[in-house]
Amino acid sequence: MRCHYCDREAAFAVEKDRMKVGLCEQHLRERMRELADAQAFGALPDGLDSK
């Protein structure tokens, strides 16, 4: 699986309603920083799984 934002190999994948999206480590870190800045972690489900 490839990263949703670039062509690198995905290190993590998120799946919801049978749709799966992958992220490389760099883009995962960037998205996590954005979420932390937006204080959106409270909206994340408890059962997050890595690839």
Rank of each mutant, 00 (worst) to 15 (best):
K16I: 05
P45K: 01
D17W: 02
G42Y: 04
R2H: 11
C6P: 02
A13K: 02
K51N: 12
D7C: 08
E25D: 11
D17Y: 01
G47E: 13
A40H: 05
A36I: 08
A13E: 10
G47D: 15
D49I: 09
E30F: 00
C24R: 00
L48A: 13
E15A: 13
D49G: 13
A40L: 12
M19H: 06
R18E: 12
D49W: 10
L35Q: 02
P45I: 05
F41I: 06
C3K: 01
Q39R: 08
R31G: 09
C24L: 03
A10V: 00
G22E: 05
E25S: 12
M19V: 15
S50T: 06
C3H: 01
Y5L: 11
C3P: 01
H27P: 04
R18K: 10
H27Y: 06
M1G: 13
Q26C: 08
F12Y: 15
R33S: 09
A11E: 07
G22F: 06
V21R: 03
C24Y: 03
L28F: 15
K51Q: 13
D7P: 03
L28A: 14
D7R: 09
K20Y: 07
D17S: 09
F41E: 10
A10E: 07
Q26W: 02
H4R: 06
S50A: 10
E25V: 03
A13M: 05
H27K: 03
M1H: 07
V21A: 11
G47Q: 10
D49V: 15
M32S: 13
L23N: 04
H4I: 07
R33H: 07
A40Y: 07
L28K: 01
M19A: 13
M19K: 10
H4Q: 14
R29G: 14
A38D: 14
A38G: 11
G22P: 03
K20C: 12
M32H: 10
E30L: 05
D49E: 15
E9N: 04
K20Q: 10
A36V: 14
S50F: 11
R29Q: 12
S50G: 10
G42P: 04
A10K: 00
R29Y: 13
E30I: 00
L28G: 08
A13N: 06
C6D: 11
D49C: 11
L28W: 14
R2W: 07
L23R: 01
C24I: 03
M1R: 00
